[in-house]
Design a protein around this nucleic acid. Structure first.
Length: 433
RNA sequence: GCGCCCAUCGUCUAUCGGUUAGGACACCAGGUUUUCAUCCUGGUAAGCGGGGUUCGACUCCCCGUGGGCGCGCCA
């Protein structure tokens, strides 16, 4: 029988990074074994489940390229199955009715644990055992008739023919109950694999207080889907052989459950960022530009930019962009007047003798060929005529025409901006001194 | 409190009884570069503690310590 795995989120808000990693591992496992990856929306909690949250899940999966092989199953459509299962358990004596705690809410259906010691094999944790007295009977149908998670989850996994259940560590203890349910229902017990949790610097569950905790936030922060996917894959799993940056095909090929670690793992946003830079650098210009445009559109100056200039700037800046939002610093390429970084101006421009050298630069740049080589030549010329050391005018010129002290090569920047704009800015800076 | 699980550089990890304990991020130093970044070179940095088993333990066993998870008519 071929491998069938599933991702079973509750549509109650954003998609937590730990959940999406579980989805990734399931997907990887399915692809590695040429099996099926299914999506099940566990929307039985009517109070908290929303259609918007379903869309959020779908969008997050699409963004990350996690494809599923059958139409999503909505748990809310399976009530009859759940009820039937409970009925069967009642008839076979595996469950009983009771007004639990005498709350007067009416009778609920309670599953009767077999009373024997329980055991199952976990693909990452090994053999798990539990004494009979340590697992109590539990409610499977509430007094209002609705099924509890354990029942719904197991019954759905049976109807979807799920062969391997790969989920978060927090479900390990539930597994003893689930195994008992499978046995009572007479269904074959699936394979289990429990993933170590992603924790914060304090070892606590990763939450929004630790920076980004949801998939959407990582996207907004400027991480690429491939980089996030690759990075998440390395949290709690290792391909061995010192491999880290891998293509999806390579990860699928290497992915096995036995290489999943057992301890909790902490996210390191710096390492993610580094990997993101690697991924951004190898994108085609078109893809990179599209993402940059997506981020710039949020800015008042970022819309309707000159397409030719925009693409040229993207090409120039791509290799030095670890995160998309960094494109917000590219404003000087497009907007006049430029904004000056006061510290840079103080340090480099407001010094004795700088003004005459800028004037010399202006003169030299007025007549030169405005290619990279031509501009460079003009600068050398200005340096020679003012007795300035070679290369010493690059920074003053950069600050005078861009306002900031960092960026791509100044010759390239000037060639891109053109003579008119360069001279106007230079003139303006000279007048400020 | 009870039960289960876990434990290698600051972080993510490799190692499946014998290694100078390897790699990556971060950090430090040097180099390339017109700035910054990239890039290249080098460096600092780890087996929680205590007992065993063994010719030999990071690796196997036990105890301790620390941490995580679970113990709902939540999922």
């Amino acid at each position: 029988m071929s491998v069938r795995v599933r991702f079973a989120p509750s549509p109650t808000g954003q998609v937590h990074i730990g959940n999406i990693r579980a989805a990734i591992f399931n997907w990887l496992f399915a692809r590695h074994h040429d099996g099926q990856f299914l999506l099940r929306i566990e929307d039985t909690d009517r109070e908290r489940s929303t259609p918007e949250a379903v869309q959020t899940i779908l969008k997050a999966m699409e963004w990350l390229g996690i494809t599923f092989d059958e139409a999503p199953l909505y748990q809310s459509t399976q009530h009859e199955q759940h009820r039937l299962a409970a009925e069967k358990l009642l008839q076979t004596g595996h469950a009983y009715k009771e007004d639990k705690g005498g709350t007067g809410q009416g009778e609920c259906v309670i599953f009767r644990m077999p009373g024997t010691d329980m055991a199952f094999h976990d693909e990452v944790k090994g053999d798990m055992k539990k004494k009979a007295v340590d697992v109590k009977d539990f409610v499977i149908i509430r007094s209002d008739g609705s099924p509890v998670f354990h029942l719904a989850n197991v019954v759905d996994d049976i109807t979807q023919n799920v062969t391997h259940i790969i989920r978060g560590d927090d479900h390990v203890e539930n597994t003893f109950r689930h195994v008992a349910l499978y046995q009572a229902l007479g269904a074959p017990i699936p394979h289990y694999a429990h993933l170590p949790m992603i924790v914060n610097a304090q070892g606590k569950p990763y939450s929004k207080r630790d920076g980004a905790a949801y998939v959407g936030q990582f996207r907004d922060m400027g991480f690429s889907a491939d980089a996030l996917f690759n990075y998440l894959t390395l949290l709690g799993w290792s391909p061995g052989g010192d491999r880290e940056k891998m293509t999806r095909a390579e990860i699928i090929e290497a992915f096995t459950l036995d290489r999943i670690g057992s301890g909790p793992a902490q996210m390191d946003i710096r390492k993610l960022t580094h990997m993101n830079g690697l991924y951004l650098a190898e994108l085609t210009l078109n893809v990179f530009a599209t993402e940059v445009r997506h981020h710039l559109e949020k800015l008042d100056w970022g819309r309707n930019l000159d397409e030719t200039l925009f693409l040229a700037v993207c090409q120039l800046m791509q290799s030095r962009t670890p995160l998309y939002p960094q494109c917000e610093t590219w404003k000087y390429f497009f907007v006049d007047p430029i904004e000056y970084d006061e510290k840079a101006v103080q340090k480099t421009l407001r010094k004795e003798g700088v003004k005459p050298t800028l004037e010399a630069l202006r003169d030299a740049l007025t007549h030169c060929d405005f290619s990279e080589a031509g501009v460079q030549q003009a600068i050398r010329q200005a340096e020679a005529s003012t007795g300035t050391g070679e290369g010493k005018l690059n920074q003053p010129l950069r600050i005078a025409v861009t306002g900031v002290s960092v960026g791509a090569g100044i010759y390239e920047i000037l060639a891109l901006m053109g003579r008119a704009r360069t001279l106007a800015r230079l003139e303006n800076s000279i007048n400020l001194l």
